[in-house]
């Protein structure tokens, strides 16, 4: 659970970088403006989560799914986000799948040691 309200803030450095990526060169955001964006982002996440949860509950689901979120985005009038998110999700799912497969093959390789150490990417977490 959240102990301090600061726990809900997103890291400043990351937000700054995201903003910088979104703006043309030479454009700037004032300190106050940046703080407002950071706050808004947290509230957006909360807002979207609770809206998606409500949608899931409506359909008698206990946990929210990726589909609930995408649907909620459309309802909240942010449908412009959906296409890029769908692409991201596809890449993410592929990555998870690959990870699983490489893990499985690693296990197999370990089972019969004769095949030598399996070359697998180090999980980045």
């Amino acid at each position: 659970m959240v102990e301090r309200i600061e726990d809900l803030n997103l890291p400043n450095a990351v937000i700054s970088r995201l903003i910088k990526d979104a703006l043309p060169d030479g454009a700037n955001v004032s300190k106050e403006g940046r703080a407002a964006i950071t706050r808004s982002a947290s509230v957006f996440a909360i807002f979207l989560t609770s809206s998606a949860t409500a949608l899931a509950h409506q359909q008698n689901h206990k946990t929210i799914t990726a589909r609930d979120i995408l649907e909620t985005l459309t309802q909240l009038d942010f449908e412009s986000f959906v296409p890029s998110l769908q692409q991201d999700l596809e890449v993410y799912r592929q990555m998870v799948k690959n990870k699983k497969e490489s893990k499985a093959s690693k296990k197999e390789a370990n089972a019969d040691i004769s095949s030598g150490p399996a070359v697998a990417e180090v999980p980045s977490e």
Binding site: I15, I37, A45, F81, L85, D88
Partner: peptide, 15 residues
């Protein structure tokens, strides 16, 4: 993951 991406998009959208 999706939520994190979403929030990132939102930040950039606002900016």
């Amino acid at each position: 993951f999706l939520m994190t991406k979403c929030t990132e998009l939102f930040v950039q959208h606002l900016a």
